[in-house]
């Protein structure tokens, strides 16, 4: 201490200050570095994507190489599969999250489920694709939109479980006690009181899950495969935006590559809009 007090001119003090200035400059530089990637990626994406964006993208099918066309069938395919995945995954996730937060908060089973769920949350999505290939595609003998939806649903579940549990844990116990004290059965207490108090947060979870799966490619590659044409049959291969981008971007044809950029822009805009909405809802629910 004595050295420090002895004055700003001492060499030790100067060294420490220099070190501090250098590392703080590094911190600024690192942040600039991180933000510049975001700007670079979005910048290129907007530049390349907007030039190809037109009404035709939303009204025409994917073209054969060398001719013009749109992305209607992959867009619809993605929407339908995402919808089905949410339809399958959300109830399962909400119920499981309810068990973790309401019934078995301190159970041994819950701690195991929580741990496994956290691992599923960041498990490689391509492995989930392989899993669904094994249990659905290989058994049924053909690729199908259903298999794609189920693969996406497997990704939805852990996200919803996690947010549901977190949001229900935030609901004050006094609310539950008040409900119990007037004789409300536990199931009604959960569905009528706890769910209502946690609603915004739970919706946030579902939105985050949608954002997560709408860009997923790997689990669809060998479940839903791809389809160049319009199909209403979920039992047949269904095209999806990410898989079409993958196929078109790696192709040698210029107009396919342009369409891939446009598709990439559409997905990114959708995902960013979803995650910003989710964040907004999330901060709203914390305030109230």
């Amino acid at each position: 201490m004595a050295i420090m007090i002895s004055g700003a001119s001492s060499p030790l003090y100067a060294t420490r200050r220099r070190k501090n200035v250098i590392t703080m400059a590094l911190a600024y530089a690192a942040t600039g570095f991180g933000l510049s990637w975001l700007a670079l990626i979005l910048g290129v994406l907007f530049y390349e994507g907007f030039s190809g964006l037109s009404l035709r993208v939303f009204t025409e099918m994917t073209p054969p190489p060398g001719s013009a066309g749109g992305l209607l069938n992959p867009i619809i395919g993605s929407l339908v599969m995402t919808f089905l995945a949410v339809l399958i995954g959300t109830p399962l996730g909400i119920l499981a999250g309810t068990y973790l937060a309401e019934y078995g908060r301190y159970d041994k089973l819950s701690s195991v489920v929580r741990f496994i769920n956290d691992i599923l949350l960041s498990a490689p999505s391509i492995v989930i694709g392989l899993f669904i290939y094994e249990i659905m595609v290989a058994q049924m003998g053909h690729f199908s939109g259903w298999a794609g939806s189920v693969a996406l649903a497997v990704i939805v579940v852990p996200v919803v479980v996690r947010t549901t549990e977190d949001m229900l844990t935030l609901v004050p116990d006094t609310l539950r006690e008040a409900a119990a004290s007037v004789g409300l059965p536990r199931s009604l207490m959960i569905t009528k009181v706890a769910y209502r108090a946690a609603r915004a947060g739970m919706i946030t979870g579902v939105l985050l899950a949608i954002a997560r799966i709408s860009g997923e490619t790997a689990p669809l590659l060998f479940t839903a495969l791809n389809n160049q044409f319009w199909t209403n049959n979920m039992n047949a291969p269904v095209s999806s935006l990410p898989v079409v981008i993958f196929q078109f971007a790696l192709s040698p044809y210029k107009d396919w590559q342009d369409l891939a950029w446009t598709g990439a822009l559409i997905i990114t805009l959708a995902v960013l809009a979803l995650s910003i909405t989710a964040r907004f809802l999330g901060s709203q629910s914390k305030k109230s």
């Binding site: 068990y99 019934y103 195991v112 489920v113 769920n117 599923l120 579940v157 569905t191």
Partner: peptide, 30 residues
């Protein structure tokens, strides 16, 4: 109400177990 209560409880428990089933399903199928 009592019946509904038990049913709901078991339903959530089954959903929680489903998470474990998914994981073991992945491992077994691989």
């Amino acid at each position: 109400l009592r019946l509904g209560d038990t049913a709901f409880r078991h339903l959530t428990r089954a959903a929680a177990l489903a998470v474990l089933i998914i994981l073991s399903g992945i491992i077994i199928s691989l």
